[in-house]
Design a protein around this nucleic acid. Structure first.
Lengths: 194, 194
DNA sequence: GATAAAAATTCAACTACTTTAATAAATGCA
DNA sequence: TGCATTTATTAAAGTAGTTGAATTTTTATC
């Protein structure tokens, strides 16, 4: 298990001593997922938060008509999970699966509670993490309210240029809240503009 | 300054002793806003986080066509502000104003930093707060992706029945991401269904 | 490397929601 | 209390984005 990426990610916000690092690492579990494998499916309880070392996941719902709606992608250095299910220990409404072969590190509910108790600095770490996630989500909400699909697509490719390369258009459309057909039309339109 | 509401709100997540309470209170500033008064306008830097004791605020943007889009409402026991501007000390894109006469308690950036240093328990408090805010926003994103305007309106009134009473339809429409005209049509349609 | 399956494109018909504009109702304020 | 302003309603025409269906292109797999 190579937790280098996770440790450097944490080191950006809080400083841990050797003991604390050892404790933290002891609370983690590695896992690998093949492309298309599920990490979580609707109705299950989300038992862990997942840090992505390598690969790409998507968190999504499937509506009554069978359409998928992606609430977030996760790539290297992102955390994914269903926080609500994780905290309340109730069944999730989300699916999480792998768009690429993926390696993650998991921390269970129990172990996270233990971590908060034994290394309170992690309260600060996750406070900052959620703070940033909140800001990002608020921006997405604001954009969804204000912008047309065309503007949202434009914004997506400028904000996440490297991510867009890794995704099929179908996935991008499910994230933007439009149909693949309409995204295809937008792309065609863009070609002419350039 | 009556901080009872704020203290009981905090007491739900962390326990403070008398000294800590005294310190915390010394870092707060009360403020009252008349209806229609601004707490923040686009281009300013957001210098504080605001806890609402009484009243109702809205956080919104105005797009290039002059339309308002509400990213959140704040009522009693909610925190509002522009976290991004607050943390980075850069100009905000948001407006915040009062829909009713409102009383708030403010904590400045400097004082919040001091609070985190002197009473680390507040790291935990805000970690939980942001965690919950993140969950609520994720649900809103998921709904905006999956649901029609009609379903979103239905959900809004069942989720925030008391809030809907306090708002004009115009404000509700600006939150749902539809025009007041269309909201009026949806309401008419609902009447017949009942 | 061949074949099947999934993703992307195109087009035409359709619908959820917007726009404009005019009228009515409700609210704020002197 | 009355007048001005804002908010809500209604209707008709317009548009952004969807649906369905057929075709091509790309990707996965044995």
């Amino acid at each position: 298990m190579d937790a280098t990426l996770l440790l450097s990610h944490i080191d950006r916000h809080i400083q841990l001593d050797t003991e604390e690092i050892a404790l933290f690492l002891s609370l983690l579990q590695p896992k690998t997922l093949k492309r298309k494998a599920f990490l979580l499916t609707q109705g299950e309880i989300c038992h862990a938060e997942h840090f992505i070392l390598k690969g790409c996941l998507r968190v999504y719902t499937i509506d009554d008509n069978g359409f998928e709606h992606i609430v977030m992608f996760g790539v290297e250095e992102w955390w994914v999970g269903d926080l609500y299910s994780f905290l309340t220990q109730t069944p999730t409404q989300y699916f999480i699966d792998a768009l690429e072969d993926t390696e993650i590190l998991q921390i269970s509910r129990q172990n996270l509670d233990k971590l908060y108790q034994q290394v309170p600095k992690f309260e600060r770490f996750f406070r900052i993490l959620f703070q940033n996630a909140f800001i990002a989500q608020q921006q997405r909400i604001q954009q969804n309210l204000s912008n047309t699909a065309e503007m949202r697509y434009q914004d997506f490719i400028t904000r996440y240029p490297q991510l867009e390369q890794r995704l099929s258009q179908k996935q991008v459309a499910a994230y933007l809240g439009i149909t693949p057909v309409f995204l295809s039309m937008l792309r065609k339109k863009r070609q002419f503009k350039k």
